[in-house]
Every structure is written in C-alpha cells, then in structure tokens.
C-alpha cells in the first residue's frame, strides 16, 4: 500500500467517497461520441486517501492503515487474511459476508472499514476452529446444512446472531403478536434467515441445524 500523508479523515468524507465509487461502478464504461471527455474523479489520479483504524477482531486488537474505500469485508479478507468471510455479490444482496459486529449481524460488504473504529467484530474464524467447533458449526456439520460451503460462514454467523435477536424479543415480519415474546419457530427462523442466500439449496437442513441449537439453548 502506498504510504499516506493523510492519517485520518472524517467519517462523513469517507462515506461520500465510497458512495461516489459505488455509483461509478454500476455504470457501463460507454462514452458517447459527443460527450466531453470526462474529468477523472477527484483523487483518482492521486494516492488514495487512507486512514488508520483500530478494531478488535475475534478478540484480538488490530491496527490497519486502509484506503478509506475499503469495505469491512475487504479489510477482513485482503488485509487481515481472514478469508472465512465470503464475497458473493459485494453489494448486499446475498449475505455471504455476514459477520457479527458488536453482537449484531451485518453485511460486511455494505459498511466501510473506517466506520468501525473501536468496534468488535466476530467472524466465522472467531466462533470456532475445525478441532473445536462452535455448537452452531457442529450442528451444520451434523445436519449437512451446507454443500459448496461458500455461503456457510455467513449462514452460521447470521444464525448465531439471529437467535440472540429472538431472545432479545426483537420481532420479525412474521411475528403475529408484537407484545408477546418472539418464538424460535420454523417460520420465524426462515423469515429471519432470508437475507442469506444458499444457491445449493441447503435451507431445509440449515433450519434443522438452527432448530437443534435453539432447542438446546432453550
């Protein structure tokens, strides 16, 4: 990474930069003949704006010097080499990048790393290891709640945080009675997990895995 002479930026300017780059990325690179040759977006020809960031990942303090355009997902995958968190779409449509941020599940592709100064992130690597699986990981293995494995870390992180949401009494679209405690029914779990796509179609098994863990916790 090129060295930076801009040690920190405000959160606001970092977000504005990211929004501009996201908008540009969605346009096909077609120049109409009569269009004036577009000026390069400000900053694109120069060294990137970088910022220092300190956060805790899986219980370990991390300090990073990052291009402010770097998503939390790419900070994890490309800078910390925590590749368990997956990039499926890079714009919040698939859920493969789900991590647990201060106890809540988030799509790490939709949030810039520099927005998380001081935050605590738990990734799939922080839940358990191959020789010491988290109960949810073990339940996914037992119920074959995965096939290709690419959406799996996101499904597992989402499952763990989702059960906490139910325990905390947060209602969902299918919660019939908003005044009663939310239940871990199949319908609730399916609804709440619908932000995590599994193209291999392991849904029925994932539900069995989550249900088993939920029943054990109850």
């Amino acid at each position: 990474m090129p060295a930076s002479d801009t040690p920190s930026v405000t959160r606001r300017s970092a977000m504005a930069g990211a929004a501009a780059s996201a908008a540009a990325a969605s346009l096909p690179p077609v120049a109409l003949a009569q269009a004036p040759s577009a000026a390069a977006p400000a900053g694109a020809l120069e060294a990137p704006v970088t910022a220092t960031l300190s956060l805790t990942v899986n219980g370990e303090a991390q300090s990073l010097e990052l291009d402010t355009r770097t998503t939390l997902l790419d900070a994890l995958r490309e800078h910390l080499h925590l590749t368990g968190t997956k990039k499926g779409c890079d714009h919040g449509q698939c859920g493969a990048c789900t991590v647990i941020l201060d106890g809540k599940r988030v799509y790490s592709c939709l949030t810039l790393a520099v927005m998380h100064e001081g935050d605590a992130v738990t990734t799939i690597e922080g839940l358990g290891r191959p020789d010491s699986l988290h109960p949810m990981q073990a339940a996914f293995v037992k119920h074959d709640g995965y096939q290709c494995g690419y959406c799996t870390p996101g499904q597992i992180c989402a499952s763990v945080a989702m059960l906490e949401e139910i325990k905390a009494g947060i209602p969902s679209h299918v919660t019939a009675d908003l005044t009663a405690a939310a239940q871990t029914t199949a319908e609730e779990i399916r609804e709440r997990m619908s932000g995590n796509i599994c193209r291999c179609g392991a849904y029925s098994n994932i539900l069995d895995a989550i249900t088993e863990v939920a029943e054990r916790q109850a």
Partner: peptide, 20 residues
C-alpha cells in the same frame, strides 16, 4: 458427515480468490 465439513463451517476451506 462430510469430511470437509469442519473446514467449510469454520471458513478455513480455501477458495480460489483466497490463496494468500
């Protein structure tokens, strides 16, 4: 159970773009 299950469920199975 699949023998690759512990790797896939812990994010330690390496996919193409992840080979640092």
């Amino acid at each position: 159970d699949r023998i690759d299950g512990p790797l896939k469920t812990t994010g330690t199975a390496p996919y193409a773009y992840e080979r640092h």
